[in-house]
């Protein structure tokens, strides 16, 4: 039986830790605020490039920012 993998993220937590708004984070990685919002809500899965950029902004590994749950 195939289980559907779920990708969760800790972007909201990391943003709160660094006191960043969605807009400010969007500007740092070169996307719109709407894109950050949809990633946070799990509606959009970012590309590897964008995921790495986000992880770099927060200074954490990508695996800590995006968690794949079975």
């Amino acid at each position: 039986m195939m289980n559907e993998d779920v990708l969760e993220n800790t972007i909201k937590v990391q943003r709160a830790r660094m006191n960043l708004t969605q807009e400010q984070l969007a500007e740092w990685v070169g996307v719109t605020r709407k894109t950050i919002n949809t990633i946070e809500n799990g509606k959009f899965i970012p590309s590897t490039k964008l995921a790495i950029k986000l992880a770099r902004v927060f200074g954490v590994p990508v695996e800590e920012l995006f968690i794949l749950k079975d």
């Binding site: 070169g30 996307v31 719109t32 894109t35 949809t38 959009f44 964008l50």
Partner: peptide
């Protein structure tokens, strides 16, 4: 132009 045509908009 870059942010307004980001990967989410393209998708």
């Amino acid at each position: 132009a870059g942010p307004l045509n980001d990967e989410y908009i393209q998708a």
